[in-house]
Design a protein around this nucleic acid. Structure first.
Lengths: 371, 371
DNA sequence: ACTCCTTTGTTCAGGCATCGAACAAACACG
DNA sequence: CGTGTTTGTTCGATGCCTGAACAAAGGAGT
């Protein structure tokens, strides 16, 4: 059984304190490496003695390594601490409509191996995609030669709080698939699942240049939003927060599969944009967007305006197809949102972040470090 | 300086553990009183010895009292524990456009004294309202005869994370008023400030019959929403979340003071509803709503649909003027939202909760208990 | 070459909080 | 009146952090 939604109050003991402080030390090393025990003590507020004891634990657990002493400064040379590049690693998986991907990152977040292969799942049963992902994963893990501590799989649909894929618009045979359970049996490793749009938002947070509060829009045939608040993903009570695609932007507009009418997805999703531009595929749309730009900007003004008003975020990142439309769309959306108070900062997703696959792998080591 | 937004990592020691477990015990007594030490130990997972020690602290601090032993069952009779009705109390304040209110609740959440007097602030400087509130507060506190541990003031406008009233639509001279600082000087007690709509939502959570995740709409001239997630208020990164009134529900509709057009507030706020119904005041509107019902329901379908999609809540509570419109409006909105998946539960705010004033006072003792 | 100074990392007694078990208290029941 | 049951307290053991003293390892100046 996966963890409950509401934190059940648990008694605290000395072990609780130890865990907390161990994570505190590890977290500071992760963000300031290489760093000496003395600096860790200074920044965390712990005693040098306590830090030494905690570091001993962490080295024994394979999380940290000690470099050779560095000479040159006054006083006794420090022995710098670093995250162990050969320690527990994270496995990231991605199952898309027409591909699978797998990636291994070490404790420092560096990508060690990453592969992506075509694999059509549109009309196949889930076993095909799960099997392909598992084979690729085994391959990648063997190539990395690191002990894998856990995995996270990015899925193109609604993932509930328990990790079950409830519905994937483009994978009609994947309703209610418990991907984590199936994959953890195949890989002999604990596996979590997450929405691909959510992981894309985390990629932007961890590897891009954005503040700690923003909304990341992933546009494709469907439109989802990853919401980041206070540097953490906001998944909502049931894990389905950020369904931006079904916000109504055109009352009385075209009917949507969700039962509503005039949803953003229906008005400014990929299909609608292709139609507006008279284009047959994404490449043609990007080359000659024409009226599609205005359609997208006007619709996004309403949907993103609602998100900004309700969530009180001041930064919006455009991803997916919207990112492909580039600066022209960004400017148009920014102009539409310019009237709002407080002002909204509109950006294009950074293409160098590595996307959902990298974030999936990184989420595993992040959980290791902060847990 | 008030507390930062992001939790700065702090080292944990034995005192941390003590605080945590003390709050754990106190919290369980609060929800199960009267209750014996043995039952507290059983439910918290702590040892009976530890619970005894913690309870000694709490009795010495005036938070708990021990009742006389109850006889009748087998075994040694328990000495039941209860929240101390004479212990630290919470002071709630409310500053409205045309009134002030003050209320004292004891540790158990029971209202001990509550008063509300007319006081027009519409075109007055802040000192008038603050002074009136302070005088009423002194009066009420004297009448209650309890030691006041702190206060919380409900304000009809945007309160930022530091507690400053940024903007109040109906109090033009109250921009950027640091009400907590002014009031704490007048009352010699720490004072927090909160949005009135947020507190109304908490009143529903604590004293009404709603799940732990919902959106509470406070409709008046302006429209705000209190968002409750996981049993806690969601205020957003800057403290201004839930600005439902400026969600666009009618693209190209009437211009709004926020710079947009077709905002919910402009289309289905009190002024618009009065106009739609041809009524001159709220009483007339409630008596003969006429087309105002359809206008409100259609607009709320869009705005609440957006909130539900983005936040993943399944319950919506209608308050303020919308609550006055009663079951007719509830049914109309529920019908509009019936097409959504998952289904949305639409309710009317419970008039017996005591509203923002009671929630303000209760928030103080709740903070005492869980802190 | 030698001494002084600075900084680093370890060691050890002290204090604090929890746990587990033993023990005393209080009452019902037969 | 003795037995059984439940409650609440007491006490030693354990674990963890703190603070200070101490050893280690180099640079700087004479």
């Amino acid at each position: 059984m996966s963890g409950g939604l509401v934190a059940v109050p648990a008694p605290a003991g000395q072990q609780t304190v130890r865990r907390h402080n161990r994570a505190l030390v590890l977290g500071y090393v992760a963000e300031a490496e290489p760093v000496s025990r003395a600096r860790v003590a200074e920044h965390t507020g712990l005693t040098r003695g306590t830090v030494s004891s905690l570091v001993d634990d962490l080295i024994a657990a394979g999380m940290l390594t000690e470099l050779s002493a560095v000479r040159g400064a006054t006083g006794r040379p420090a022995s710098p601490l670093q995250l162990n590049r050969s320690g527990p690693a994270g496995l990231g998986l991605e199952i898309g409509v027409e591909h699978v991907g797998a990636s291994v990152v070490d404790l420092s977040g560096t990508v060690r191996v990453s592969r992506r292969v075509a694999s059509d799942h549109r009309d196949q049963p889930p076993d095909v995609g799960l099997g392909a992902a598992a084979r690729l994963a085994a391959d990648v893990v063997a190539g990395a030669g690191l002990p894998v501590a856990g995995a996270c799989v990015a899925l193109p649909g609604l993932v509930d709080a328990a990790g079950v894929l409830r519905r994937a618009p483009n994978l009609p045979r994947w309703d209610d698939v418990d991907a984590p359970e199936r994959l953890s049996a195949l890989l002999a490793t604990p596996v979590r699942a997450a929405n691909e749009a959510d992981l894309a938002a985390l990629a932007e947070l961890w590897f891009g240049d954005v503040p700690a509060d923003f909304v990341h829009v992933s546009a494709d045939v469907g439109i989802g939003a990853g919401i980041v608040l206070g540097g953490a993903l906001f998944r909502g009570p049931g894990g389905c927060a950020g369904e931006l695609g079904h916000v109504v932007v055109e009352p009385g507009g075209p009917a949507c599969s969700c039962g509503g009418a005039g949803c953003l997805e229906r008005v400014a999703g990929l299909d609608a944009l292709l139609r507006a531009a008279g284009a047959s595929d994404v490449e043609a749309l990007v080359a000659h967007p024409g009226p599609a730009l205005a359609v997208a900007a006007g619709s996004l003004r309403i949907a993103l305006g609602a998100a900004v008003s309700l969530l009180d975020v001041r930064t919006v990142v455009l991803g997916g197809v919207y990112a492909r439309l580039g600066e022209d769309l960004r400017e148009a959306v920014a102009a539409e949102l310019a009237t709002m108070t407080p002002p909204v900062d509109v950006r294009i997703a950074d293409p160098a972040t590595g996307g959902a696959l990298r974030a999936a792998a990184a989420s595993v080591v992040r959980a290791l470090i902060s847990g």
